[in-house]
């Protein structure tokens, strides 16, 4: 399996652990991510707030480069471009989608691209998020087969954030309100997944720079929810989410008088650990809230199988009403 790879600015430095762990995991799984040569920033949520056409041209340069470098290279007419960052994923897929919808916009964008000797045909790339590729192309079975050191006993809150599941322009692979693919991936690694009602709620994005109070409240809600369910850590798939929950956790504590110490890791870091890779190889140690105390439990012998054993249904009071049946979560 070979994919075009768009790391995005964050993975170059502040979310370097995401990049490191993703490459290490890909090697274990035999998946090749070929970085788009000379890609530029996707504009995050800021560029589009300043100028429309320049924002679309900015993103389209990446699409044009990726299409040229990816399409046809592996025999497939329509190449696939994978973004590990949710904001990059959204911008790439949204621009592709809106260009398809508006020939006038495409025309303007291609006029601009022509100044750099480039052009892009909407729809000629398939833009996907890394999680989608991991669960749907690689698949849970192959992940399970690669697990060497199950994360038994680790209570994980799966955090999707916004843009990977919403608004789902082209590649909708999970429920936009209550996604479950990361839950299942974590269970595949042997971890215990706690219910996390706020799993698709917002981390605040760049609001930390605009209104600190608003942003810290959003972060607090997430930390509180994970703490309420006794999560050992929150696992995420977006560098923005990781940065906000991790680097601002102390600010939340000082503002609200709380004492949260919840490590925030990327899902690829946990995949790597479960695959038996050493912590350093998956970038552990770069987080503000140290993950090592929680991870130390993995190295130890699994605790008495209280958590791993299938939970017995609590004996029902005779009067209780049956719960609605949900479709099998598989």
């Amino acid at each position: 399996m070979r994919y075009g790879y768009y790391p995005g600015c964050s993975l170059e430095r502040n979310a370097g652990a995401y990049h490191t762990s993703l490459m290490a995991v890909a090697a274990q799984l035999g998946v090749e991510f070929a970085e788009v040569d000379d890609w530029n920033c996707c504009g995050a949520t800021e560029f589009i707030a300043v100028n429309r056409l320049r924002a679309y041209a900015l993103v389209s340069r990446n699409l044009a480069l990726a299409a040229r470098q990816t399409n046809g290279s592996n025999g497939a007419a329509r190449g696939q471009l994978v973004a590990p960052c949710s904001a990059c994923f959204l911008n790439l897929s949204k621009v592709d989608h809106y260009l398809s919808e508006s020939p006038a916009l495409t025309n303007d964008v291609n006029n601009a691209l022509a100044a750099g000797g480039l052009s892009y045909e909407p729809g000629s790339l398939r833009v996907r998020h890394l999680l989608d590729v991991m669960v749907n192309d690689v698949g849970y079975e192959r992940v399970a087969a690669t697990v060497r050191r199950p994360l038994r006993g680790l209570r994980v809150a799966p955090y999707y954030g916004c843009l990977v599941v919403r608004p789902g322009f082209r590649e909708r692979f999970d429920d936009p309100e209550y996604p479950t693919s990361l839950d299942r991936l974590m269970r595949t690694l042997g971890a215990t997944v706690v219910d996390f009602p706020l799993k698709a709620h917002c981390c605040g994005g760049h609001m930390t720079q605009i209104s600190r109070d608003v942003a810290l409240e959003l972060i607090r809600r997430l930390l509180k929810n994970a703490a309420d369910y006794q999560a050992d850590m929150i696992v995420t798939l977006c560098p923005m989410c990781q940065l906000n929950l991790d680097a601002f956790q102390e600010s939340v504590n000082s503002m609200f008088g709380t004492e949260y110490r919840i490590p925030i890791l990327f899902f690829t870091q946990l995949m790597g650990l479960a695959f038996g890779l050493p912590p350093a190889a998956v970038g552990i140690g770069k987080e503000f809230i140290d993950a090592r105390p929680a991870l130390a439990r993995i190295g130890a012998a699994p605790p008495a199988e209280a958590e791993a054993a299938p939970k017995r249904k609590p004996r029902r009071n005779d009067q209780s009403l049956p719960l609605p049946q949900m479709p099998e979560e598989e």
């Binding site: 000379d38 100028n51 320049r54 900015l58 303007d108 601009a112 750099g116 480039l118």
Partner: peptide, 20 residues
């Protein structure tokens, strides 16, 4: 860490500005 072809990007964005 600027991209290699920063001039290409600038040309594209300048053209976008002109179109606007």
């Amino acid at each position: 860490r600027p991209i290699r072809q920063i001039d290409q990007l600038k040309a594209i964005l300048d053209r976008a500005r002109e179109i606007d």
